[in-house]
């Protein structure tokens, strides 16, 4: 018998701190597998965010920098300009990327920075205890939208991938999900493709991954997958939003 599935080399041995059933771990593994398959682990520099994935620098087995909240695309810009021959990626949640770091991601994309953003959208702030995110769905109850998010007072959930896809500097933007095996397999392909685009020097790339937050959604891990499928995908349609040939 031979091993057909094992821990990718691009992940360290450190046990991950995420809550049971949180899909951050799946996305970490997909990124690591893509780095392994492209044999670029030693030529990759990652940037960790602030939020649940703040310890990503402990998990990805490559050179890493930890950025201030929302600033990962600016930090990645600095790294990439110094090492244009290396692969540089950011790993950011929705509070980090879509709220406090909205300017940084827009302008990194617009400059066509040859970096890859892995954007985790779980419609909530996880680390700080389940507050409303820019991506929180209408009527979704969170710690800071206790009566449900209302468009009149909190505005509508932001579709970041669609927004960034209007920018000329963006070479590839796709929204994927990890709520079942089929979608996990596809998410992996998208992440790998984003890195390939970066290696080819095509421009800014981003993969938005719809993810779960069982703890702050108040659901079991399994219920969370269903909630994602039933509630998030209708508002955040999956698919390629921009691809420059």
């Amino acid at each position: 018998m031979k091993k057909v599935f094992k821990r990718p080399e691009s992940l360290t041995d450190k046990p991950m701190h995420y809550c049971p059933g949180c899909t951050h771990g799946i996305v970490h593994r997909l990124v690591a597998e893509a780095l392994d398959e492209l044999n670029i682990r030693q030529d990759t520099i990652g940037v960790a965010p602030v939020g649940c994935a703040v310890f990503a620098y402990d998990y990805f087995n490559c050179d890493m920098q930890e950025a201030a909240h929302g600033r990962a695309p600016a930090v990645a810009t600095g790294i990439k300009r110094v090492h244009p021959d290396k692969v540089v990626f950011t790993y950011q949640g929705d509070g980090d990327l879509a709220s406090i770091g909205a300017a940084e991601i827009v302008h990194a994309a617009n400059r066509g920075e040859k970096i890859t953003a892995i954007f985790i959208n779980n419609a909530i702030y996880g680390m700080t205890g389940g507050q409303m995110a820019p991506t929180t769905l209408l009527d979704q109850v969170t710690a800071t939208s206790p009566y449900g998010r209302k468009a009149e007072t909190e505005g509508y959930p932001i579709r970041i991938s669609e927004m960034l896809s209007t920018l000329e500097g963006a070479a590839y933007i796709e929204r994927v999900s990890v709520h079942d095996i089929k979608h996990i397999n596809h998410a992996k392909k998208a992440i790998r493709k984003a890195f390939e685009y970066q290696l080819q020097g095509r421009g800014f790339t981003m993969v938005e991954v719809l993810s779960t937050c069982p703890t702050n959604w108040g659901l079991t891990p399994l219920e969370s997958l269903k909630w994602l499928k039933d509630n998030m995908i209708p508002y955040y349609p999956l698919g390629v939003k921009r691809e420059v040939e």
């Binding site: 018998m1 031979k2 091993k3 057909v4 599935f5 094992k6 821990r7 992940l11 046990p15 991950m16 995420y18 059933g21 949180c22 899909t23 951050h24 771990g25 799946i26 593994r29 095996i181 996990i184 397999n185």
Partner: peptide, 19 residues
């Protein structure tokens, strides 16, 4: 059957599969 679905779904990379 070694389909590795369990391993692919696992958020904590707990599972190895041999076939």
């Amino acid at each position: 059957i070694g389909c590795a679905f369990c391993a692919m779904m696992c958020p904590d990379v707990v599972i190895e599969v041999e076939k």
